[in-house]
Amino acid sequence: MKEKENILSVEDLGVSFLVKEGQFARKSQKLQAVDGVSFRLERGETLGVVGESGCGKTTLGRAILYLEKPTSGKIVFKGELVEDILRKNPLELRRKAQIIFQDPYTSLNPRMTVGSIIGEGIEIHNLAKGRAKQERVKELLGLVGLDASYIARYPHEFSSGQRQRIVIARALAVDPELVVCDEPVSSLDVSVGAKILNLMLELQKRLSLAYIFISHDLDVVAHMSDYIAVMYLGKFMETAKTHDIIHNARHPYTRALWESMPRIGKEKIVGLKGEIPSPLNIPSGCRFRTRCPYATELCAQDVPPLTEFGDGQLVACHYAKEIKDGTHVPTNAPV
């Protein structure tokens, strides 16, 4: 087997914002959007990040590219601190790490042609000029399954699926090694989304891309990822290989997310009660305890650390072992 090449390693990453209490307030509060997140990502592999809205998954994606400045921790991209890369040569990072956003309507400039949208990065990074640039753009259009003749058209002439292909072509134009994909198929129809996912898998194989795939949809994340991190209120609750997250989940939140997916033939779902608490008011101890059917006194007092359960599975739950063994049953009285 080929030696794995580390693309990204993130250690104890934290991102916080200051939020004013009301429009005219002088006091502000700290909102910890990402809290002590660590992971590693190898070339050609995908880390899926899944969680509910407001869990910090988008902030995490942006912080990795320094689109949001981290407040603590470190990010190492190909063996070098991202901060150092940015200081020496900011363009370098922007070339090697790209991002794809959810809404293909707002992420394309309506006044630019497809050719100039995709070619812009090539020009900025001095990768090709003139005829060579045009050729490269056409090649990219072909790569994402679009006709080379589309080069002179404007974004409004395309369907949402085609636009997302243009967005992908633009990201790939500068030969990145890491692509952060933030809900890339959430605004697309099922059949259109399926084609985009297929395209992304194919491109990953062909170009050895590393993906960070962010979505609220566990099915889609499972489909795309080698590893999955389940995020809740800024923290990773469980990280494991995709297979283990689906068939061998230990954290009650992971199980609840999986259980809550409506599926053909499923008649009864025992889901979670309540809503995700405000990130300005994170519960003490385990932050999931207010919605957890297994919560006890202990959960309100101590923050459960991420503990390893073999094969790289990390779980932040005091009762991860007992729940699996069936010796700890739901208390049904969240503290």
Binding site: A194, D219, H223, T242
Partner: peptide, 21 residues
């Protein structure tokens, strides 16, 4: 049939997407 077949399966493999638009 095609719509149901195009749903993600939880495995990292190609989906049976419906051709065309």
């Amino acid at each position: 049939k095609a719509l149901i077949a195009s749903l993600p399966t939880g495995e990292k493999e190609m989906l049976n997407a419906i051709e065309g638009e």
